[in-house]
Design a protein around this nucleic acid. Structure first.
Length: 680
RNA sequence: GGCGAUUUAGCUCAGCUGGUUAGAGCGCAUGAUUCAUAAUCAUGAGGUCCGGGGUUCAAGUCCCCGAGUCGCUACCA
């Protein structure tokens, strides 16, 4: 814990280049990482902040296919938007690159080769779907078919977007390839796996014993994984978009994104510092810190460290300050549902207000639990805190100086006890801010910075220079000098959080010196120094502005609801004989109960006119009271291949209609019929 | 279902290894003040610390049972 480091390497989760960046990304990763980087730089420490776009993986290829463009064009588009909006927002990356770069391909495949040569991988052969027409294995997302759960015809091999359940390609009914449309066949394929189980022992010691200071959620989740026992993880996939596996017998195989992406941190460092990058990744005196969201904990605490350890020459992260999630107006942020505040849109609609958003996201950061971003809160924090406390104090100090001293820093004179006490408070706040920042508690650190402005306001209120001006200009001189020194201190204290404002303030008062250690000094502005024209640091945000934003969101929600359901296109024509192959019948529910230890499954006992049969159906969440279904007549597929689920043999499928919102409703005959009759 | 985290004033959050009347910011109320973007400063009112048991001289803080929320994971014919 008390370990001293010479330099700090900060990595930020690589945003996936299939969409722009939104406030959730910012609050969770980039704003805190940027605060940390700026703070350390201000202290004069050696720091590197690495970022980049994650540009491989199946969803990007699908997006490309849907839009009729190449994957490269997709990632070019979003990489450009993301990179530009980060820059404009003041995220101070030393480099923001991408995983499609040549350097990354070289680095990642080299990394793989090293592990391969060291014998760190095992291979496993399994059967996967293969498209004979396109002559390639099909990634989960390349297979569509009917969702066994909700009947959606366009479910993907990994997930049904209609009902949200995750699937395996083998689950799909009537699977077909999205590439050629042909029906895929099962074929053997071999992949390399990283045997995480082999790394369990040292991981246990390293995390559970040596990093007890990690955040509770991070530590707890790692412990949970380690206690469950680690499994080998495939590092390659059959796909043509990505970093090719650098082996002769690996045609058509690329590195799995999870293996590929974190190496991007390394590649981007190499791109930036081709000669000295190893100092940053291999010297034990470098402190490596990963900023991520909570969904990424296991990758960064267990998987990536295992990769680094297997390679052998790399250091391990010192901390992984994962944040929780940010919600928006009470709802989960969602790219696909377009429920988000997009950074590039914010920058356009609120020009010059980068710091307002940075402030709100930090003051309300999801550091310990999920938080909610609301426009009302955005407005309140701007008007009541930035304008009223920080902006107002600076304005008071500058306007008073203008009025009484012609805009020149007046003589300091002699500090009295109250002055000294005020100065002492500043020094105390500085110490506290350091403690908080060093422990990744940015929300509280920002609060302390605001306290400095509060101290300033109180100082002016207590000293009342506007009254003394009538009797004791010498004292007023000291008061205003001190107030200006406070202002200069604010420019330093706020730099990590509100860099644009800090710069504006520095320019305004002509402060050249700015380093963290100057914080707490009251000799930052010399007597006689001429100040610039006072300008407002922040402006009020009126009701109609935030109302418009809320309206925009509501419109989005409405549009989403309207667009939520599109009747799927009619499927391929089938012959009557094919239809007749399906044996759909009516039966009566004799019994119905939940399957233990399964969230979604209901177990039906059906009177089918012959004997009885058991059918499982994944509709438990829509029928909270299974007993109520007893006695009801249902339609079911009678000649399905029986299948064991959760240890119970299911002999058929209950037919349900899936509503627009994904809700399943059981189909039943409109009048009572005899059990076992056919439906046609 | 399993595992992890979380649940404290209207809102957002602090409360380390259990110890006098549970804290902060915002909002609210009252007062003071006018240099300032009606901003500021002071004072105050707000809490069966998710619910139920238990350990202890003493529990928001430890143990057990349960509920809500989020994440990971299993299941989805």
């Amino acid at each position: 814990m008390a370990k001293q480091f010479k330099r700090t390497l900060i990595t930020t989760a690589l945003p996936y280049a299939n969409g722009p960046v939104h406030i959730g990304h910012l609050a969770g990763v980039y704003v805190p990482a940027d605060i940390y980087a700026r703070y350390l730089r201000l202290k004069g420490e050696e720091v590197l902040m690495i970022g980049g776009s994650d540009e491989h993986g199946v969803p990007i290829t699908i997006k490309a296919r849907n839009e009729g463009i190449t994957p490269q064009e997709v990632v070019d588009r979003y990489h450009t938007i993301i990179k530009r909006s980060f820059e404009e927002f003041g995220i101070s990356f030393d480099i923001y690159s991408r995983t499609t770069s040549a350097i990354h391909h070289k680095t990642a495949s080299g990394f793989f080769k090293t592990l391969y040569d060291k014998g760190e991988f095992i291979t496993k052969t399994s059967e996967q779907y293969y498209d004979e027409e396109a002559k390639q294995f099909l990634a989960d997302r390349y297979i569509t078919g009917k969702c066994p759960h909700c009947g959606n015809e366009r479910a993907y091999g990994d997930q049904c977007e209609s009902c949200g359940t995750s699937l395996s390609p083998l689950d799909l009914i009537q699977p077909h390839s999205t590439i050629s449309g042909s029906i895929p066949v099962m074929k053997e394929t071999t992949h390399w796996y990283l045997p995480l189980d082999k790394h369990e022992a040292w991981l246990r010691k390293w995390i559970l014993e040596e990093h007890k200071e990690w955040k509770p959620n991070v530590y707890g989740q790692c412990k949970s994984w380690l206690d469950m026992g680690l499994q080998p993880r495939a590092v390659s996939r059959d796909l043509d978009w990505g970093v090719p596996v650098p082996l002769d017998d690996a045609k058509g195989k690329v590195l799995y994104v999870w293996f590929d992406a974190p190496i991007g941190y390394i590649s981007n460092t190499i791109e930036l510092l081709p000669d000295t990058w190893e100092t940053w990744w291999k010297d034990p005196e470098t402190k490596l810190v990963h900023f991520i969201g909570k969904d990424n904990i296991v990758f960064h605490c267990i998987v990536f460290p295992s990769m680094l350890k297997a390679e052998g020459s790399y250091i391990l992260p010192e901390n992984v300050p994962a944040n929780e999630f940010l919600n928006l107006e009470g709802d989960k942020i969602s790219t696909s549902r377009n429920w988000a505040v997009w950074l590039h849109e914010y920058l356009e609609e609120f020009p010059g207000k980068q710091d307002v958003l940075r402030y709100v996201l930090t003051a309300n950061a999801p550091e310990t639990k999920d938080n909610d971003f609301t426009w009302k809160d955005f407005q309140a924090r701007n008007n009541n805190e930035l304008v009223a406390i920080f902006g107002n104090f600076v304005n008071r100090a500058l306007v008073l100086t203008q009025k009484y001293f012609d805009g020149k820093v007046p003589a300091q004179g002699i500090f009295n006890d109250y002055d000294q006490q005020t100065i002492a408070e500043f020094v105390a706040v500085k110490v506290e801010m350091e403690r908080l920042l060093d422990n990744y508690r940015f929300r509280d650190a920002l609060k302390e910075a605001m306290n400095l402005a509060r101290i300033g306001n109180k100082y002016l209120a207590d000293m009342e220079p506007w009254k003394l001006a009538k009797t004791d200009m010498e004292r007023v001189s000291t008061i205003m000098n001190l107030s200006l020194q406070i202002t200069a201190n604010l420019a330093i204290a706020f730099e990590p959080f509100l860099p644009f404002t800090a710069e504006k303030l520095r320019d305004m008062i002509g402060l050249n010196l700015w380093e963290w250690n100057a914080l707490g000094s009251f000799a930052l502005l010399p007597e006689g120094h001429v100040l610039g024209e006072p300008a407002l640091l922040f402006e009020k945000i009126e009701d109609d502005v935030v109302e418009r934003q809320v309206q925009k969101l509501l419109d989005t929600r409405k549009a989403n609801e309207a667009a939520a359901y599109k009747a799927p296109p009619v499927k391929e024509k089938v012959a009557f004989e094919d239809f007749m192959k399906m044996d759909i019948r009516v039966g009566t529910v004799l019994d119905c109960q939940r399957v233990p230890k399964a969230d979604k499954l209901l177990q039906f006992r059906i009177a089918d006119g012959l004997e009885e049969r058991t059918i499982l159906s994944g509709i438990a969440q829509y029928y909270p009271d299974p007993k109520a279904l007893i006695g009801m007549q249902v339609c079911f597929m009678a000649n399905f291949e029986p299948k064991k689920l959760r240890g119970i043999m299911s002999e058929g499928m209950i037919l349900s209609a899936e509503d627009a919102d994904g809700k399943l409703v059981i189909i039943q005959p409109s009048a009572k019929v005899t059990n076992g009759v056919e439906v046609k």
